[in-house]
Deep mutational scan, measured.
Amino acid sequence: ATVGSICDLNLKIPEINSSDMSAHVTSPSGRVTEAEIVPMGKNSHCVRFVPQEMGVHTVSVKYRGQHVTGSPFQFTVG
């Protein structure tokens, strides 16, 4: 992922509605921003955001307030 470019995290989660999901990204400096959740068809969801700084980011994806399997996810920008 690169700073200022759209970053997509694709998840396969069976039998949940994306409208019941939420996602937030925490940057290396601790800034928390909301991420967009895009339905991608049956059981597939895309978490979309634009990182604003380099370094390790943490993406928390929740369904009805509970982390989904594997969340929070970490990835490096830059």
Score class of each variant (00 low, 15 high):
residue 33 T to Q: 12
residue 7 C to L: 04
residue 23 A to P: 15
residue 18 S to K: 06
residue 62 K to G: 11
residue 1 A to M: 11
residue 54 M to S: 15
residue 54 M to L: 12
residue 77 V to D: 05
residue 47 V to L: 04
residue 5 S to C: 01
residue 15 E to K: 06
residue 64 R to I: 11
residue 78 G to P: 05
residue 53 E to C: 13
residue 70 G to K: 13
residue 9 L to S: 06
residue 67 H to Y: 08
residue 71 S to C: 05
residue 15 E to L: 09
residue 16 I to H: 10
residue 52 Q to H: 12
residue 32 V to F: 11
residue 41 G to C: 07
residue 24 H to I: 07
residue 40 M to T: 15
residue 18 S to E: 03
residue 78 G to T: 05
residue 67 H to Q: 06
residue 12 K to N: 13
residue 25 V to K: 06
residue 34 E to P: 09
residue 64 R to Y: 10
residue 65 G to Q: 13
residue 4 G to W: 03
residue 12 K to Q: 12
residue 6 I to C: 08
residue 45 H to R: 07
residue 51 P to K: 07
residue 12 K to P: 02
residue 69 T to L: 05
residue 52 Q to P: 14
residue 32 V to P: 07
residue 18 S to Y: 04
residue 41 G to V: 08
residue 77 V to F: 02
residue 59 V to E: 02
residue 69 T to S: 12
residue 56 V to R: 09
residue 14 P to G: 05
residue 51 P to D: 01
residue 67 H to W: 08
residue 47 V to Q: 00
residue 26 T to H: 12
residue 77 V to T: 04
residue 54 M to V: 15
residue 33 T to W: 09
residue 6 I to E: 05
residue 42 K to R: 07
residue 18 S to W: 03
residue 48 R to A: 02
residue 73 F to Q: 02
residue 70 G to S: 14
residue 66 Q to F: 03
residue 78 G to E: 03
residue 56 V to N: 11
residue 3 V to H: 01
residue 41 G to D: 10
residue 43 N to H: 02
residue 36 E to S: 13
residue 61 V to D: 01
residue 78 G to N: 08
residue 32 V to C: 08
residue 24 H to R: 09
residue 65 G to D: 13
residue 55 G to C: 02
residue 14 P to W: 01
residue 1 A to R: 04
residue 64 R to K: 11
residue 71 S to I: 02
residue 46 C to V: 07
residue 55 G to Q: 02
residue 68 V to Q: 08
residue 50 V to F: 04
residue 78 G to S: 06
residue 70 G to C: 10
residue 68 V to R: 02
residue 7 C to Y: 13
residue 41 G to R: 11
residue 25 V to F: 01
residue 15 E to A: 09
residue 59 V to A: 01
residue 45 H to T: 15
residue 43 N to G: 15
residue 31 R to Y: 14
residue 5 S to T: 10
residue 71 S to G: 08
residue 34 E to V: 12
residue 76 T to Y: 07
residue 53 E to D: 15
residue 68 V to M: 04
residue 15 E to R: 06
residue 25 V to P: 02
residue 78 G to H: 01
residue 59 V to K: 02
residue 49 F to I: 04
residue 26 T to L: 07
residue 32 V to H: 07
residue 72 P to S: 00
residue 68 V to H: 13
residue 66 Q to E: 13
residue 60 S to V: 11
residue 77 V to H: 00
residue 69 T to E: 14
residue 47 V to I: 06
residue 15 E to P: 03
residue 40 M to P: 14
residue 60 S to I: 13
residue 7 C to N: 00
residue 77 V to W: 02
residue 3 V to R: 03
residue 26 T to Y: 14
residue 6 I to P: 08
residue 5 S to G: 03
residue 62 K to E: 14
residue 24 H to L: 09
residue 76 T to N: 13
residue 4 G to Y: 02
residue 61 V to E: 01
residue 39 P to F: 04
residue 13 I to W: 00
residue 65 G to F: 05
residue 67 H to I: 04
residue 63 Y to E: 13
residue 62 K to V: 13
residue 68 V to F: 04
residue 70 G to Y: 05
residue 38 V to A: 12
residue 72 P to G: 05
residue 78 G to D: 04
residue 62 K to D: 13
residue 63 Y to T: 15
residue 9 L to M: 12
residue 57 H to P: 01
residue 17 N to C: 08
residue 58 T to C: 11
residue 2 T to I: 05
residue 31 R to T: 13
residue 39 P to I: 08
residue 1 A to D: 08
residue 73 F to G: 01
residue 66 Q to D: 12
residue 32 V to I: 14
residue 6 I to G: 00
residue 54 M to R: 07
residue 44 S to M: 07
residue 25 V to W: 06
residue 14 P to F: 03
residue 16 I to W: 03
residue 69 T to M: 06
residue 26 T to C: 10
residue 59 V to I: 13
residue 72 P to C: 00
residue 47 V to R: 00
residue 29 S to A: 02
residue 70 G to A: 11
residue 59 V to Y: 00
residue 41 G to Q: 12
residue 77 V to C: 08
residue 42 K to H: 08
residue 11 L to F: 13
residue 62 K to I: 07
residue 49 F to Y: 03
residue 76 T to A: 11
residue 56 V to F: 09
residue 41 G to E: 14
residue 60 S to P: 13
residue 7 C to M: 06
residue 30 G to S: 15
residue 48 R to F: 00
residue 73 F to H: 01
residue 7 C to D: 00
residue 52 Q to A: 11
residue 59 V to M: 00
residue 42 K to F: 06
residue 45 H to Y: 06
residue 19 S to T: 03
residue 77 V to P: 05
residue 33 T to N: 08
residue 69 T to P: 14
residue 33 T to Y: 14
residue 78 G to M: 03
residue 67 H to C: 06
residue 4 G to V: 00
residue 75 F to R: 15
residue 44 S to Q: 15
residue 53 E to I: 10
residue 14 P to Q: 01
residue 75 F to C: 06
residue 61 V to K: 00
residue 4 G to A: 00
residue 17 N to D: 10
residue 40 M to Y: 06
residue 2 T to P: 02
residue 43 N to T: 11
residue 61 V to G: 00
residue 26 T to W: 06
residue 23 A to R: 03
residue 16 I to D: 01
residue 22 S to T: 13
residue 53 E to K: 10
residue 70 G to P: 07
residue 62 K to L: 13
residue 45 H to W: 00
residue 31 R to C: 10
residue 53 E to F: 08
residue 19 S to Y: 03
residue 75 F to E: 11
residue 5 S to K: 12
residue 76 T to M: 06
residue 56 V to Q: 12
residue 76 T to E: 14
residue 34 E to W: 08
residue 77 V to E: 03
residue 60 S to Y: 09
residue 39 P to Q: 09
residue 13 I to P: 00
residue 53 E to T: 12
residue 43 N to L: 03
residue 51 P to E: 05
residue 12 K to G: 01
residue 49 F to T: 13
residue 23 A to E: 02
residue 63 Y to K: 11
residue 64 R to D: 14
residue 23 A to D: 00
residue 70 G to V: 11
residue 61 V to P: 01
residue 70 G to D: 15
residue 68 V to I: 06
residue 68 V to P: 04
residue 51 P to R: 04
residue 58 T to I: 13
residue 65 G to P: 02
residue 52 Q to T: 09
residue 23 A to F: 01
residue 56 V to E: 14
residue 73 F to M: 02
residue 33 T to V: 10
residue 13 I to G: 01
residue 76 T to P: 15
residue 73 F to D: 03
residue 74 Q to G: 13
residue 40 M to F: 03
residue 2 T to R: 10
residue 70 G to I: 08
residue 53 E to R: 10
residue 70 G to M: 10
residue 34 E to M: 10
residue 49 F to C: 10
residue 56 V to T: 07
residue 20 D to G: 09
residue 62 K to W: 12
residue 47 V to T: 02
residue 42 K to Q: 07
residue 31 R to F: 11
residue 55 G to R: 02
residue 2 T to Y: 03
residue 13 I to Q: 02
residue 14 P to K: 04
residue 53 E to A: 07
residue 24 H to K: 10
residue 44 S to Y: 09
residue 59 V to Q: 01
residue 50 V to R: 07
residue 25 V to H: 12
residue 75 F to V: 15
residue 64 R to V: 11
residue 13 I to S: 02
residue 18 S to D: 01
residue 39 P to Y: 07
residue 3 V to I: 14
residue 68 V to T: 09
residue 5 S to W: 03
residue 49 F to M: 05
residue 63 Y to M: 13
residue 77 V to M: 00
residue 2 T to C: 10
residue 58 T to Q: 14
residue 15 E to G: 15
residue 63 Y to W: 09
residue 44 S to V: 03
residue 7 C to K: 00
residue 16 I to N: 05
residue 77 V to K: 02
residue 34 E to D: 13
residue 26 T to N: 08
residue 54 M to Q: 10
residue 45 H to F: 07
residue 61 V to M: 03
residue 14 P to H: 06
